[in-house]
């Protein structure tokens, strides 16, 4: 894992900008993530953390900047030194190599747990249903839901739903996983089970970019912590550098407030 970090970044966001009307949500944000790395993005609400995450898999179309995933610019085709925007259809193909876990789970309510996990591999990757089913069972087993495969999302607790959502993303065998505040919508007693699953993924070498308010998780699991405020990255570094010995006053103030 250590030597993989020296290789080309699996995710390279270059000067990404986004505004809604006159409100500048992201200003020239650049971030690289190496394979196997776990990066936690922290910061006050309204800092643009979620928008940045959604710009990476182009759920949100950036106004400027490029997002390179495994040597391809998301949403574009490189030809003669220019980037030509892709159709939604071809963009979908690119997205299949990324995974995302949402704050509100967004499970498909009309499909069973197994159906949710199998949807992408079968419909998008067109892999045979039999092998996908076996894999999906294994993934669900790993998130501790092997006995729930025939349940519908409405029959599960919030923590169980989020674990299914993680399994759904993992089943696509993505290059990296984006987590958009995965525990913010959960009752406090259910946060732990989801964080445990995420820590397990991190230990297995999954590349992860996690927007979170869980400082404990960031401290335990993150290889790197990024502090964002007002649409930009204020500082980044190891857990020790950012969480324990922040240089910027903005970071210090934020940490004082959340850790108080």
């Amino acid at each position: 894992m250590t030597d993989s970090r020296t290789t080309r970044p699996v995710l390279d966001a270059v000067r990404v900008s986004k505004h809604y009307g006159s409100n500048e949500v992201l200003k020239d944000v650049s971030l690289q993530v190496a394979a196997g790395e776990v990066v936690c993005i922290i910061g006050p609400s309204g800092a643009g953390k979620s928008t940045f995450l959604r710009c990476i898999n182009r759920l949100e179309v950036p106004d400027a900047g490029e997002v390179w995933v495994d040597g391809e610019a998301m949403g574009f085709e490189e030809r003669d030194g220019k980037l030509y925007e892709l159709s939604e259809r071809r963009l979908s193909k690119q997205r299949a190599s990324t995974g995302m876990v949402f704050q509100h789970f967004n499970l498909f309510p009309h499909l069973t747990v197994l159906g949710n996990v199998m949807e992408g591999p079968v419909r998008v990757q067109k892999r045979p249903a039999a092998t996908v089913r076996a894999e999906a069972r294994a993934v669900l087993e790993r998130v501790g839901l092997g006995d729930k495969i025939d349940s519908y999302p409405s029959q599960l607790s919030g923590g169980q739903r989020q674990r299914v959502a993680i399994a759904r993303a993992v089943a696509m065998k993505p290059l990296f996983l984006l987590f958009d505040e995965p525990t913010s919508a959960l009752d406090p007693e259910l946060v732990g089970e989801v964080l445990t699953v995420m820590a397990g993924l991190a230990a297995d070498g999954m590349t992860m970019l996690v927007v979170t308010h869980e400082m404990g998780f960031a401290r335990e699991v993150a290889d790197r912590v990024v502090f964002m405020a007002d649409g930009g990255i204020v500082e980044q570094g190891t857990v020790d550098e950012v969480l324990l010995h922040p240089r910027e006053a903005r970071t210090q103030r934020f940490l004082e407030r959340v850790l108080a």
Binding site: L59, S92, R95, T98, G99, F102, H104, G120, R168, A169
Partner: peptide
Amino acid sequence: GQIEAAQSIGETPLQ
């Protein structure tokens, strides 16, 4: 969010 989830696993507009 349903559409976004379908997008996130790479489904095309038709799918």
